[in-house]
Design a protein around this nucleic acid. Structure first.
Lengths: 258, 258
DNA sequence: CGGACTGTTGACGCTTGTCAAAGCCGGTGG
DNA sequence: CCACCGGCTTTGACAAGCGTCAACAGTCCG
């Protein structure tokens, strides 16, 4: 449900992968993925979507299923980039830190997203699970070798990386030029299905939202209150959020004059 | 000479293409590129570097040489994305605007850079020449068709797009978390060769720097003065800039405590 | 010489950050 | 069942960094 296609001006554009509708829970520890790929619920939302069924085993040989607990790290900035990830379920935050502790979350990744697209020798950012995450982990070297046999893998990654770049451009506009209220409105429109009448619980806390929008926790909280008092959103005691006035919220998000 | 490899924290990472050393000026109007490719000064800095000499004619068939005057647009946000560009000389700015006129420059592109990497149906940003620009213009549809014959083209673009993404992440950290002084220091380190003793003239004006760093012209100007007064840089009357204290400037740029 | 453009500097105000405290909720243990 | 504790969120008072408005200086060019 997160990340909807909005108008161009800075409301976040479409994501790299579509969220999958539902994902039956199967208690998977750590194992090779070979036997699972064909019937995998993420069969057509991930990297494997680039291949035909008969070619899946070759890809599966380079992959492993993993479950990452909330708060655990998928990767750490500066470590050798051994793996490439494909999120199947859950949410993780991608971030960079400054030496004195200031943090910028450059993006949240959910089902269907790739992690590790920038192909440098070392990871360029840290990634931490915001809620429990299930994913497919690929060995980078093995994956690169498969590019020769299956150019469609490279095509899929090129499209995904290009989309990430567009999202990044929108986020630069947000961080460089939007007010706190405009940033929060943009964020909510990207994460909450506007037509949905029941409340949506965001997986990340106020601190993560602040680090994503380049603000402080207090400023985020104050602007939540402003949006609520103006009747644009509703917030339940369980922190479930509903968009009440989508038009008004969009107007704020794109920075329409006054 | 612009864009040097810095430490990780937020000083902009390496660019997608290396700047070429020198580029002899030839008054080229508008013509097919076929006869020029083999001897082109950008032969090994652009898209053509992905191909062997004997395969160049096929790529050249989809390309045209162009010269874009300072202030002219390469593309406009929202227009159908017919072309793909490879800069050979000069500097251009990539930007997005909000309806009320606020502008965010998401990047400057120089020799070796690709423009139009995010493969959407419409251009996602506007691009304007900051100084006269010479470039190779490719027809997108024709280029896509060549991907089948020459997968190495796709590989080159994937690497380039990945690098752009890393640069974008660094810029998000800059825009979201760095002070005005830290932003300017980061920018100067990316654009001026630190070891160079003679002054460097930046191709863009204060307004463009402000739009790139998410600041105003006045704030940029004030922080130039601060860096100069602290003895970190020198500025001649012709607006040529020299880095005097690279260590100190780097310390500010990465946000080292105090 | 005069006008346009770019860059610099100053005074002031507003948005946002900082510091502090209180409310709310869930979990734990008596 | 209730008291207590810890984390997260909200709210308030205040300060600081940056934006806004305005004036002025330097350069280019007619």
């Amino acid at each position: 449900m997160p990340f909807h296609d909005m108008v161009n001006h800075g409301v976040m554009p479409v994501p790299v992968g579509l969220a999958i509708a539902a994902m039956p829970y199967r208690p998977i520890a750590e194992q090779g993925a070979g036997t699972h790929c064909a019937g995998c619920a993420a069969r057509h939302t991930g990297l494997c979507d680039a291949l035909a069924d008969r070619d899946l085993p070759e890809l599966a040989a380079a992959a492993q299923w993993r479950t990452i607990r909330r708060g655990a790290l998928l990767m750490t900035e500066g470590d050798p980039a051994r793996y490439f990830f494909n999120i199947n379920h859950g949410t993780a935050k991608v971030y960079r830190d400054l030496p004195d502790g200031r943090r910028q979350i450059t993006g949240f990744v959910t089902a269907g997203y790739f992690v590790g697209l920038g192909m440098a020798a070392d990871y360029s950012a840290s990634v931490e699970a915001v809620e429990d995450v299930r994913l497919c982990r690929f060995d980078r070297a093995a994956l690169r070798a498969l590019f020769v046999t299956f150019p469609s893998l490279e095509r899929t990654l090129l499209v995904a990386t290009g989309n990430e770049l567009l999202i990044a451009q929108a986020q630069m506009l947000l961080l460089g030029r939007k007010s706190a209220l405009e940033r929060l409105a943009s964020f909510l429109l990207a994460w909450i299905e506007p037509a949905r009448l029941t409340g949506t619980r965001l997986p990340m806390g106020r601190g993560d939202i602040a680090d994503y929008l380049g603000l402080t926790i207090e400023t985020v909280s104050r602007n939540f209150t402003i949006l609520r008092q103006r009747g644009l959103i509703a917030i339940s005691t369980e922190q479930e959020i509903t968009i009440v006035d989508c038009t008004g919220l969009t107007g704020i998000a794109i920075g329409a004059a006054a």
